[in-house]
Simulated scan of single mutants.
Amino acid sequence: MIARVLTIAGSDSGGGAGIEADLKTITALGAYGCTAITGLTAQNTLGVQGVHPLPADFVALCIRAVLSDIGVDAIKLGMLTNEPIIRAVATHLPPNVPVVLDPVMISTSGATLLPDDAISALVSELISKATVITPNLPEASKITGLPVATEAQRIAAGRRLLEMGAKAALVKGGHGEGVDLTDLLITAEDVVSITLPRLETRNTHGTGCTMSSAIATGLAQGMRLEEAVRRARAYLQEAIRTAPNLGAGHGPVNHLTRLEG
């Protein structure tokens, strides 16, 4: 049976991030995507013009509808919009299903997508349910309160996320500097560095959404966590390299790219 991935996230009218990016990624990697949309955004490559949260009870109803009929093999959590939605999602996550938590707080263009008063709910309600949490550097620092300027500091922030309940943390290096980009996969047993050349490009819209949904797809397909992360990173690298150069701002990546082998 085809692997099933439920993405619980916001919708991007520009198609490059959120639910739209998730479904494209899940499909490109050979799985079946279902959705529970947490909010609607009016946005394009230049920025977010508006955010319209959906009612928390309707988000919960969408989750129940999918779980009761189609079922899921992994869940990706993206933009959760506010505290009531976070608590509704936490209540409805099924046991023994891998959960990839992308703690979306700020869009690529700089718009706030999760208010400060909801961050504490994310920490208390969802981090302990995460198979892996996938923060970028600003998110890792915001959640843990730790600096992330050096690799040692990033590892310390990842370990703090484990202390907060996550089973693993992928601290992403995209906001760092240098000719190479290193993501750090931190577990209780090990620290794995995944390094690829940094691509100088404006086409980075939705990269976090794409990465997290690609990891969720790998876990749904039975991959080990490190294997799923490595495939997701390779997929994202190629999607950025072959981006279609749409829009005048931060353009979307090419979700239709195919990996060899």
Rank of each mutant, 00 (worst) to 15 (best):
L146S: 02
R154C: 15
M164V: 02
T144A: 01
M164R: 03
A130T: 11
E125A: 13
P115Q: 08
A169H: 08
I119F: 00
T144D: 03
R154A: 13
S128E: 07
G176C: 08
E151S: 01
I143W: 06
K172R: 09
S124T: 15
A166Y: 04
G165E: 07
T112P: 03
A166K: 04
A130P: 13
A169K: 06
M164C: 03
K142C: 13
T150G: 05
V148P: 04
S120D: 14
L122H: 05
S128K: 08
L161D: 14
I119L: 09
P147K: 01
P138T: 04
G145H: 06
T112L: 13
L122Q: 06
D116M: 04
D180W: 09
K142Q: 14
A130G: 10
S128F: 09
S124P: 05
K129W: 07
V132F: 08
P115A: 09
I119V: 12
L170M: 00
K142S: 10
D117N: 13
T150Y: 01
A169N: 08
V148S: 07
T131K: 09
I155N: 06
I155G: 05
D117E: 13
T112Q: 11
T112R: 12
A140E: 08
H175W: 07
A149W: 01
G176S: 02
Q153C: 01
E125S: 11
V171G: 03
L122T: 10
A140W: 05
K167D: 10
T134A: 15
S120T: 14
P135E: 09
M164E: 03
L122S: 11
E125C: 15
V179I: 07
S128W: 06
A121E: 11
E177I: 04
Q153N: 04
H175S: 09
E177S: 13
P138K: 02
A121F: 10
E163K: 15
L146N: 02
L170V: 00
A121M: 11
L137I: 15
P115E: 10
L114P: 07
I119E: 00
R159W: 06
A157N: 07
E151T: 11
A111I: 14
V132G: 05
S141D: 05
L137S: 07
R154Y: 04
T112Y: 02
K167P: 00
T112A: 12
G178S: 07
G165L: 13
I127Y: 01
L161C: 15
D117W: 03
A168V: 13
G145S: 06
T144G: 05
S141W: 06
H175N: 10
D180C: 03
A152W: 06
T112I: 15
S128H: 10
M164H: 00
A121L: 13
I119T: 04
D180R: 10
R154V: 12
S141L: 09
L137T: 12
V123M: 11
D117H: 15
V123W: 01
A140Y: 05
H175K: 10
E151L: 04
K172N: 12
G165T: 08
E163G: 15
S120I: 14
G145L: 10
T112K: 13
V171E: 02
A149P: 00
L113A: 07
D117R: 11
R160T: 15
T112G: 00
E151N: 00
A111P: 11
K142A: 14
K129R: 15
K172C: 11
R160Y: 02
A121D: 12
L126D: 03
Q153L: 01
T134W: 06
L161K: 13
G158N: 08
R154G: 11
V179A: 11
E125N: 10
